[in-house]
């Protein structure tokens, strides 16, 4: 028997049956944890409303209307200030988390084209690609917030359907560190994997959920290489599940 075989054998034969775990206590603590998560989730939603805007822009069901736009990679400055300038759904009602959101003027709709390259996540929804792209936004009194990150779908003919847009509503959109993380809100025709962006030399981004770590996929934004766009594979993080924490590390493994 080789050392490895012996190791395998030893690990198995020393297993003890009838572990003395108190399942009543396990379930009691599990219920408390579940309750705490619900409360924390509700609190986080309120907090999010104060810190950032997350806009579900395509609340469409199967066969419903969708936001479709041709994606020339050209940015245009909005002609009038609006709280955010995402692409609202054609014939649909934008949904805002936490706070009511003013209607966007027509000019804003026309200017919400992708800034820089559209990033293909490699995730597919039928024939559509899950893509992420920056769009120009404008927030009153916040001149340093000019971009937002959109999660959308790209059809085979190149048309884009925007599902969720996240952007800062104060501070600066290029400040170092993490910015708003977007989650599936249940209003899209396809599940939206969690996504966001980090400003800085991140080489690895890891989230924590239920005590396990999930590693994000990364892509640098073509217009500013300091902006690292990340998303989580749905196999690792179920769309709609909230992260408990998230960290970024540089190429040497140092936490940023």
């Amino acid at each position: 028997m080789s050392e490895l075989d012996r190791l395998r054998h030893a690990m198995r034969v020393t297993e003890r049956g009838g572990a003395p775990l108190d399942l009543d206590a396990v379930m009691r603590e599990g219920r408390r944890l579940r309750t705490r998560r619900r409360v924390a989730g509700a609190g986080a939603a309120v907090l999010t409303a104060g810190l950032a805007a997350v806009v579900v822009v395509a609340a469409v069901g199967p066969g419903g209307p969708s936001t479709v736009e041709r994606p020339p990679p050209v940015a245009a400055v909005p002609t009038s200030p609006v709280p955010t300038a995402p692409t609202p759904p054609a014939g649909g009602t934008p949904t805002t988390l936490g706070t009511p959101r003013p209607t966007l003027p027509p000019e804003a709709e026309r200017t919400a084209s992708p800034l820089g390259q559209v990033i293909d996540s490699g995730i597919r929804h039928g024939v559509d690609q899950r893509v992420y792209y920056m769009v120009r936004v404008s927030v009153p009194g916040e001149p340093r917030v000019t971009i937002g990150l959109a999660a959308g779908r790209r059809a085979p003919d190149g048309t884009l359907t925007t599902d969720v847009l996240v952007n800062d509503v104060d501070g600066a959109d290029r400040s170092p560190g993490f910015h708003q993380v977007g989650y599936d809100e249940g209003g899209s025709a396809a599940p939206v994997p969690a996504f966001g962006y980090f400003v800085g030399p991140a080489q690895r981004i890891t989230g924590t959920v239920d005590g396990r770590q999930v590693t994000a996929r990364l892509a640098r934004w073509s217009d500013d290489k300091q902006v690292v766009i990340f998303w989580f594979d749905p196999a690792d993080l179920t769309p709609g599940d909230r992260l408990d924490g998230i960290i970024a590390r540089d190429g040497d493994g140092r936490r940023l």
Partner: peptide, 15 residues
């Protein structure tokens, strides 16, 4: 035992 109990608590919370 503590670690296994923690794992089962969290598993139950997400059951």
């Amino acid at each position: 035992e503590d670690a296994a109990q923690t794992a089962l608590v969290r598993t139950y919370a997400s059951w």
